[in-house]
């Protein structure tokens, strides 16, 4: 699914990869692929991650991982970094999720009573990137669907998600709700629908697999 999500990045884009699964997309991009990766703590032009013995103590991404520069990288303060986000310079952001609703609402920052570390830059990414896609497991650890008719958790942003990449499928958020686009190898459309807690439009034609 990470490799499939990486194909969502078109040449020339400015992209922010959220903490967690989305960060692993970097490993699927070839060194000559033309893209500008942004991180909230003040860097455009993120290079590959570095092992601790090679790391620069002053060069991290927003998840705290040690990263490198590429020719053409720029560093800047947090206000400039979020000016990039809020002014629409991000073509794409890939975020993790606790829940996504059939209308594209995203909940990914708080589980009341259990998990409340704060929102960080998540709201601005979700609300202001030109395209927001989600990378997540299709169900949570207890097997409960993360794709739901409506989110039950506090929202990060409303109606922001365009597409969802899971271990089972690629699903678009359309004006009519969730629509199945692709399935993972060996997964049937019926299995995806059964693991989704909202109506799922399934096209008549054979679906591509990834």
């Amino acid at each position: 699914m990470v490799a499939r999500a990486a194909r969502e990045i078109a040449p020339g884009m400015v992209v922010n990869l959220g903490i967690g699964l989305p960060t692993r997309v970097v490993g699927c991009l070839s060194s000559d692929f033309p893209v500008c990766l942004h991180t909230e703590n003040g860097l455009t032009g993120i290079g590959p991650p570095l092992a601790p013995e090679l790391a620069d103590r002053n060069l991290i991404d927003a998840g705290g991982a040690y990263v490198s520069l590429v020719p053409g990288s720029a560093v800047f303060d947090s206000a400039v970094s979020f000016a990039i986000v809020r002014s629409g310079r991000l073509d794409l952001t890939m975020l993790g999720a606790f829940e996504v609703s059939a209308s594209g609402d995203l909940a990914n920052w708080k589980i009341p009573g259990k998990f409340s570390p704060g929102v960080g830059g998540g709201i601005e990414l979700a609300q202001k990137a030109r395209r927001v896609v989600v990378l997540t497991t299709h169900t949570d650890r207890s097997g409960a669907p993360k794709l739901k008719q409506a989110c039950s958790l506090p929202l990060t942003a409303r109606g922001c998600v365009s597409r969802i990449f899971t271990d089972m499928a690629v699903i678009d958020v359309t004006p009519g709700g969730f629509a199945l686009v692709e399935t993972a190898e060996g997964i049937s459309a019926a299995e995806v629908a059964a693991a989704t807690d909202a109506p799922l439009a399934i096209p008549d034609a054979a679906l591509p697999t990834f």
Partner: peptide, 21 residues
């Protein structure tokens, strides 16, 4: 997080770029 949950620490969360601005 534990100090916050116990009430010993009052925490105000801001969106990151809004805190910066």
């Amino acid at each position: 997080i534990a100090l916050m949950n116990s009430g010993a620490l009052e925490v105000e969360f801001n969106a990151q770029g809004i805190l910066a601005e």
